[in-house]
Design a binder for these strands. Structure first.
Lengths: 141, 141
DNA sequence: ATTGACTCTATAGTTAGCTTTAGAGTTTAT
DNA sequence: ATAAACTCTAAAGCTAACTATAGAGTCAAT
């Protein structure tokens, strides 16, 4: 089964839940590129660009700016050592940054969970009553 | 050892790495509150407000809006079932949302790691060369 | 063949989250 | 006691990331 490979901008919008205008905006920022144009000027996008749009959505949801997303999308192995060193460096930096975000999210998640459990008569309900108090008391462990 | 409990706005700024103006802005949005004012009008913040500022910083870094952060900060157990149900609901929703973010971050992290390893002669360097290709190939596993 | 849905470019407007500016008073270190 | 550093309010300005508007052309279904 072959997957479709020519999408008009409105189709992309429906598939990704973005607006047509947002997609044109991302194109103007070079996050994606129309793979073709009809004689009328209509943009045509291929499946690869659709994948990129999904990536943009996901990366945005976790707090990356469009500039950072652009950097991630442009990361690619090249067959020479110069760019290889660059990729090693950038990936290492980004991974560290992402790991920090994961850690933050996990501690917020765990605080929310404590709050959730303490609801309606959990054993901690007397001592802990806000996210901050939980974050602080957990930090002391 | 008692921890300090009266901070002027400039001290908070130094401690948290925020600007004085940003802190006043957060106060204007009710994310934090001055616990006191000097006769001169100078704001005085206590240690609890300092903790809140740190929370704001961390939550912002993982993509929460100030409105969402405000919601999280206001979450607290109350001694009646009505608000308890609300807290249960809100915490459950936020936890699910956070878990999604963690999953996104982990898949991006793992793609970056593959890219990182493939650099300079890793075994995958021939097949995979961008984040997207890695994300896609991993999705197929 | 025509009409309704879609797309184009260009430009202006919007919202969130700050930053800057201006002018005036306050604190603190010498 | 005075100057440097800090703080105040109010209002305007800025950047990122869109959204909306206008006017014109295009496509698809009847």
């Amino acid at each position: 089964m072959k997957t479709k490979n020519r999408y008009k901008i409105g189709e992309l919008a429906k598939l990704t839940g973005m607006t047509v205008e947002a997609i044109r905006f991302y194109e103007s920022k070079n996050l994606i590129q129309a793979s073709d144009r009809l004689p009328s000027g209509y943009r045509i996008f291929n499946a690869h660009e659709l994948d990129k749009l999904w990536f943009v959505r996901r990366a945005k949801a976790v707090g990356f700016s469009l500039d950072e997303i652009s950097e991630l999308l442009e990361l690619r192995l090249h067959p020479n050592d110069h760019s290889c060193q660059e990729v090693k460096q950038v990936t290492a930096d980004k991974m560290a940054q992402i790991q920090e975000k994961i850690d933050e999210l996990q501690s917020i998640h765990s605080s929310l969970n404590t709050l959730h459990q303490a609801c309606c008569g959990g054993p901690e309900s007397a001592e802990h009553c806000t996210i901050l108090q939980i974050l602080n008391s957990e930090a002391k462990l």
